[in-house]
Amino acid sequence: MSAKPTDRRMRALALLEQLEPGASGRVAKNLDDFNPEAVEILLGFGFTDVVARGGLPLKTREMLTVAMLASMGTAPGQLEFHMRAALNTGASHDEIVEIVLQVAVYAGIPAAMNAITAAKSAFTSR
């Protein structure tokens, strides 16, 4: 079931598409299949209300997201997606490597090892 195309939903999906071409359709279908309001609630908050704010460039926001997801160590699919998104918004291969090394210092070697796996996959997909 597809949800009503509100402005907030459309802005969230447009930003998601900017992060990774083709992602908005896949994610919207997945969330709509769960609940017609999920895109509005989850992506509306995350992307429209927070990520789209001024104050930090999108590249910086994605690099921060990579560091946080890598440190959490519990969201490998999201980590790999946001590594690709960071690359798509201008982060370099070397910047991703430096983020992972920083994660090793502050979140531990296991978190960094998981992040290395995600990074290798993200690098290969490009």
Rank of each mutant, 00 (worst) to 15 (best):
63 M>A: 09
55 G>Y: 09
66 V>F: 11
58 L>R: 11
104 A>T: 05
112 A>N: 02
71 S>Q: 03
113 M>Y: 02
64 L>K: 04
27 V>W: 07
103 V>A: 08
28 A>Q: 12
55 G>Q: 08
75 A>M: 07
55 G>E: 06
62 E>A: 11
34 F>E: 00
71 S>N: 01
95 E>H: 04
123 F>S: 03
39 V>D: 00
79 L>Q: 02
13 L>W: 06
62 E>S: 10
71 S>D: 04
45 F>H: 15
18 Q>R: 15
94 D>Q: 14
73 G>K: 03
16 L>E: 10
24 S>C: 08
93 H>D: 15
74 T>W: 11
60 T>S: 15
103 V>Q: 03
65 T>D: 11
72 M>T: 02
81 F>G: 04
50 V>A: 13
102 Q>L: 08
45 F>G: 12
71 S>H: 10
36 P>M: 01
87 L>W: 14
80 E>Q: 10
40 E>T: 01
107 A>R: 05
105 V>E: 06
70 A>D: 04
64 L>M: 15
89 T>K: 12
82 H>W: 08
81 F>L: 10
91 A>P: 07
55 G>S: 12
104 A>R: 02
23 A>N: 05
112 A>W: 01
89 T>S: 12
105 V>I: 14
20 E>D: 10
50 V>I: 15
25 G>V: 05
47 F>V: 12
111 A>K: 12
81 F>M: 08
69 L>T: 06
122 A>C: 05
55 G>A: 10
26 R>Y: 12
107 A>S: 14
51 V>T: 15
105 V>Y: 07
42 L>S: 13
108 G>M: 11
31 L>I: 05
101 L>Q: 01
101 L>H: 00
123 F>G: 03
49 D>V: 11
70 A>M: 03
30 N>Y: 13
56 L>P: 08
32 D>G: 10
15 L>A: 07
14 A>V: 00
62 E>Y: 03
72 M>Q: 13
91 A>N: 09
104 A>E: 02
105 V>N: 00
89 T>R: 14
69 L>H: 06
22 G>M: 05
41 I>Q: 08
106 Y>G: 04
101 L>A: 06
30 N>M: 15
105 V>R: 07
16 L>S: 07
100 V>C: 10
21 P>R: 13
26 R>H: 14
118 A>Y: 03
105 V>M: 12
65 T>R: 12
83 M>I: 15
114 N>F: 01
57 P>I: 00
41 I>V: 14
74 T>R: 14
80 E>W: 00
43 L>Y: 13
125 S>Y: 10
81 F>T: 01
